[in-house]
Amino acid sequence: MEFVQDTHRLALMNLMLHGLESDPAAAGIRYGDTLSPEGAALPKATLILTNPPFGTKKAAACPRVMISPSPPATSSLRFLQHIYRGLKAGGRAAVVLPDNVLF
């Protein structure tokens, strides 16, 4: 799911240029917000590629991101938890993280 319409269009064009499925429904790249109720209904994924919007007010207030009994202090760790819970068993994720998040 891609939140920025122009980026969503570029992703679909990139699939088409590489001879992959460019139909949005079949490609599995949807336009929308993963923190919305629509995003909450997404099935678990085998692959997640993301550059989360760390530090945004919407992310800090979203209950989907704060899903542990004692939520992590930073939105970076909350997004990591959100991404981890969105993966199928054996799934993979590539995530852009700010410096020092994992230290």
Rank of each mutant, 00 (worst) to 15 (best):
L17V: 07
K88N: 13
A73M: 10
L77A: 07
I83M: 02
F79E: 00
K57G: 02
T46V: 08
G19W: 05
E38A: 15
H82E: 01
L87R: 03
A94N: 02
A27F: 04
Q5T: 03
A59T: 05
K44L: 15
N51M: 01
L15S: 01
T7D: 06
K44H: 14
V101F: 08
G39E: 01
D23N: 15
A45K: 07
L42G: 03
T74I: 01
A89R: 13
L35D: 00
K58D: 09
P37W: 06
V101E: 10
G86Y: 00
D33F: 04
A89P: 11
K57P: 00
S76D: 14
R9S: 12
F54I: 04
R78E: 00
G55W: 12
M66Y: 03
L87D: 06
L47G: 07
L97C: 11
M1Q: 06
K57F: 04
A89Q: 13
L97M: 09
K88C: 12
E2T: 10
S70R: 15
T46M: 12
D23T: 05
S68K: 14
G90Q: 10
A27Q: 05
T7G: 09
L42F: 10
P71F: 02
L49Y: 13
G19M: 05
S75T: 15
T7L: 13
L10H: 12
P52E: 08
H82N: 10
P72Q: 02
A11L: 14
G19S: 08
D99A: 13
L15A: 09
L102T: 13
L12R: 02
H8D: 10
S70P: 03
L35C: 09
A11E: 08
R92S: 12
A41G: 09
D23H: 11
L12V: 03
P37K: 02
R9F: 08
T56W: 10
T56L: 12
R64Y: 14
L42T: 03
M16R: 15
P53Y: 00
Q5Y: 08
P52V: 04
A59E: 06
L20A: 12
S68N: 12
G55T: 11
A73R: 15
K57S: 11
P72V: 00
I48W: 06
K88D: 14
D33Q: 04
L12F: 04
M13C: 08
N51R: 00
N100C: 10
M1P: 02
H8N: 10
N100W: 11
T74E: 07
A25K: 12
T56H: 10
F54C: 05
F103W: 10
K88I: 00
V96P: 02
G91M: 03
S22G: 06
R92P: 00
S22Q: 06
Q5D: 13
A45H: 11
A26M: 13
A41Y: 05
N14F: 12
T46W: 15
P98C: 06
N51S: 13
T74V: 01
M1G: 05
R9G: 04
Q81K: 09
M66Q: 15
S75Q: 02
A89D: 14
L12G: 01
H18A: 07
N100R: 15
L10I: 13
Q81R: 12
R9E: 14
M16H: 13
P71N: 05
L17M: 14
P69E: 11
L87K: 02
D33T: 01
A26L: 15
A25Q: 14
V95T: 06
